[in-house]
């Protein structure tokens, strides 16, 4: 970019993609704020900076609405990791990943890693109804007081009593097709078992695991980038917007 700014560019970029209403914003909110609360359908894209140890990770939460389709490839430009999100109770949301979102990832890095994430697992899977969130338990309960019953929530959302429509196997099959689309060897890539997640933004199930797995996986990409720009001083990066990552976790790296 030609600007003469001294903006400290984030080290690495992670992008959330997926149809509207699958819970991208909720996932990110659960991860950064440890809460599940009402969201409004995202417009365009929203940029967040996450401090991960000494690194700055930028996360783009994009809008799933068709209205913003044209912007997707811009948000994906140079991405190191892309989270393809679907809703486990909605088959179409998985299909959309392939039909609408996969082509947007063409602008991502060549070594970009992909995760396929089935959200709203709490609606179908009893184990996902228990919070895995270690430090956010109490908050979680207060936030969700009036929506403890998944059924209530789901009727207001998808009008069906939410049977599981997408199995883990479906997701893994999609992951295989993504690798093929990217022209990647299955053997030399990250295995589907590792890159397909089922999560619940509502209970926090698997949410930290998802983000932290990805962050750890993009570290090599960060380090390579740093070596390319040897002159880029670490100090600068660290002081950059410490404020926006109050919840930075000491456990990282």
């Amino acid at each position: 970019m030609p600007e003469t700014s001294k903006m400290k560019k984030p080290d690495v970029k992670v992008v959330l993609l997926g149809d509207m209403n699958v819970g991208k914003t909720s996932l990110l909110h659960r991860y950064t704020e440890r809460k599940f609360k009402d969201t409004i359908s995202t417009v365009g894209g929203a940029f967040f900076l996450k401090q991960w140890g000494p690194y700055n990770i930028s996360i783009w939460d994009t809008a799933g609405r068709e209205q913003f389709h044209g912007l997707g490839s811009m948000y994906c430009r140079g991405a190191a990791a892309i989270i393809l999100t679907y809703d486990v109770t909605n088959w179409q949301s998985l299909a959309e990943l392939e039909e609408r979102f996969l082509s947007l990832t063409d602008t991502a890095n060549h070594d970009c890693i992909y995760a396929v994430v089935g959200n709203k697992a709490d609606l179908t899977d009893p184990t996902a109804q228990q919070s895995q969130d270690t430090d956010g338990m109490s908050e979680d309960q207060t936030e969700c007081e009036d929506r403890t019953e998944p059924e209530v929530l789901s009727t207001s959302l998808t009008s069906s009593a939410s049977p599981k429509q997408v199995t883990h196997e479906d997701a893994m099959a999609l992951y295989g097709r993504i690798l093929r689309y990217k022209g990647l060897e299955e053997k030399s890539s990250l295995p589907a078992e590792k890159m397909c997640f089922e999560t619940s933004a509502k209970t926090g199930y698997n949410v930290d695991t998802l983000f932290e797995t990805l962050f750890d996986l993009v570290l090599p990409s960060i380090l390579r980038k740093r070596n390319e720009y040897q002159e880029s001083p670490t100090v600068d990066l660290e002081e950059c917007r410490g404020g926006s990552s109050k919840r930075a976790r000491s456990s990282c790296c």
Binding site: T39, G44, A46, F47
Partner: peptide, 17 residues
């Protein structure tokens, strides 16, 4: 109106056409 209606998640920086 757009800002009022779309900024429930206010921590991030929004970029939208």
């Amino acid at each position: 109106n757009l800002i009022g209606a779309s900024s429930a998640f206010q921590a991030g920086e929004i970029w939208t056409p």
